[in-house]
Computed example of a mutant assay.
Amino acid sequence: MTSPPDPNRSPASNDTEDSDFESMLANVEKSLQALKQRHHQIQHDTERHAELTGQHEQLKKQLRRSKNPQLQAQLQTQLQKISQQLEELEIRLESTLMSWETLREPFWQAVRYGGLGIIIGWVLKSCSS
Rank of each mutant, 00 (worst) to 15 (best):
A34Y: 03
Q62Y: 02
R92K: 13
V111F: 09
N68F: 02
P7H: 05
E101R: 14
E51A: 14
Q85W: 03
Q33D: 09
Q74V: 07
S19C: 06
Q84T: 12
S129H: 12
L71N: 10
A50W: 07
V111H: 05
W122Q: 08
H49E: 00
S3M: 11
S13V: 07
S95G: 02
Q72Y: 03
T53Q: 11
I42N: 03
L32W: 05
D45H: 04
E88V: 02
I120P: 00
L71T: 12
I42A: 08
A110G: 07
Q74R: 09
T53N: 09
M1K: 08
L25H: 05
L35G: 11
I118A: 13
T77S: 15
T77V: 14
I118T: 12
T2W: 09
Q85F: 03
H49Y: 14
M1L: 08
Q76V: 07
H49P: 01
I82G: 01
P69N: 04
Q43L: 15
L86I: 02
H39R: 15
N8E: 12
R9H: 04
E101D: 14
I91L: 13
Q33L: 12
L71S: 14
L124Y: 00
N8Y: 11
G115F: 04
P69V: 07
E105A: 14
E88F: 01
S83M: 00
L116S: 12
E29H: 13
E88L: 00
K61E: 02
L124T: 06
K125R: 10
E51F: 09
L59V: 04
F21R: 14
E17G: 02
P11K: 03
E51Y: 10
Q37E: 13
P5W: 03
L116V: 09
L35P: 01
S83L: 00
Q80L: 05
K61H: 04
A110F: 15
R9A: 13
Q58Y: 06
H56R: 11
V28H: 05
S3E: 09
R65F: 00
D6E: 07
P7W: 03
C127E: 10
E22G: 13
R104A: 15
S129I: 10
M98N: 15
H56K: 10
I82F: 04
L93K: 09
L97H: 15
E90N: 07
Q33S: 10
